[in-house]
Write a protein that binds this DNA or RNA. Structure first.
Lengths: 202, 202
DNA sequence: GTCTATAGGGGGATAGAC
DNA sequence: GTCTATCCCCCTATAGAC
């Protein structure tokens, strides 16, 4: 049982290191086998405990999924959007945003994988909750592009469409990025920032 | 039971309209609830039959998934790659390819959804089989970009990376495209073709 | 080609001891 | 905070009648 107060605290602010470890473990397994493909018994075995013990840390399986997804969608807003309100030209701020976004993916690959694939496994209420974050991020970027156009710095016929195109381009890299591959993540971050700028250069 | 000859025929060339109907139905349900989230009973009910009857049409559940994914990955190669060997400048051929790719997604949204999310639910052998198609498509596009650079038509430091960036941009639209939305699919196809060209214009 | 029946296993979740 | 034991349900797949 949880108290009313605990129920209203956002999941990721509750609990400590153990809870975060379990979420990270769940993210890895969900990524490898899919949310519905991983049972609580499998999860528990990987955490060296019994399935029943997991229910002391999480109300149910969905809460594990929600926390994994929040690592992506809530933290991204917090880390990234302040960049757009910071100093620099519109172009410089966009470059910093793209680089930061690429590195956030590289630093949280399992969670990004899960957030991309398993959002629909959430109940409708939870789904909507995540979508609010996701849309806020995209809309703010579209706004930044429109601002840059008004400032005469960008050339862009359709900021909404281009913001989606740029985000999809970046998010796709988690599918093929290989830490041992031809390019380091910092090289990719730089090149993707250039590609984004190229879409907007007058 | 199937004969040896049937077993060696590629899945999508076997069977008739009924089989294709069942694959389309499965694609829709897999998209809505995920591959592991849809049971054979659910599938059978939606098709107005009993679960056991499905095993007359498909050896197992995975065969349904494989066929859904092949609608995307095998057909795309067949429809699209000839464009790059056809007439026109490198730029014109790229524009035709992007438009065709966008329309293929719009015409097969369920299958594309499943192909993007559930590839890992395949057994390793089947997974590899699909990846061969996927890589062939991407490599051929990277080749086209490199050819265009040599012809002096494109400017591109890293054709491999840019081919991935363009494909990820396009494939992402299935996440947010709404047939009843602001832009028609043909408008999106045109604008995405322009964005792709913009990445390569000297 | 479709059915009924069922095998054999795993699913999420809970009760209550310690 | 972790355990054992268990509930009840759904899973994929097969056997064999029609």
């Amino acid at each position: 049982m949880t108290t009313a107060e605990e129920r209203e605290t956002p999941p990721a602010r509750r609990g400590g290191a153990r809870r975060a470890e379990l979420v990270a473990l769940a993210s890895r397994l969900f990524r490898e086998r899919g949310y519905h493909g991983v049972g609580m018994r499998t999860l528990a075995e990987a955490a060296d405990m019994q399935a029943a013990s997991l229910y002391h840390h999480f109300r149910n399986k969905e809460e594990l999924l929600l926390e994994a997804i929040f690592v992506v969608d809530r933290d991204l807003i917090a880390d990234q959007l302040p960049i757009l309100d910071g100093p620099g030209t519109h172009r410089e701020r966009l470059v910093r945003l793209v680089r930061g976004h690429v590195r956030h993916i590289a630093d949280n690959r399992d969670a990004w994988w899960v957030a991309a694939r398993e959002l629909r496994a959430l109940s409708p209420d939870r789904f909507d909750e995540v979508q609010v974050y996701r849309r806020r991020y995209q809309h703010r970027i579209a706004q930044h592009l429109a601002d840059g156009v008004r400032a005469g710095e960008f050339d862009c016929d359709d900021p909404r469409l281009v913001s989606l195109a740029i985000l999809d381009m970046i998010n796709g890299l988690n599918e093929w990025f290989d830490p041992a591959g031809r390019l380091t993540i910092d090289e990719i971050a730089d090149r993707y920032a250039s590609l984004a700028v190229r879409q907007l250069t007058p």
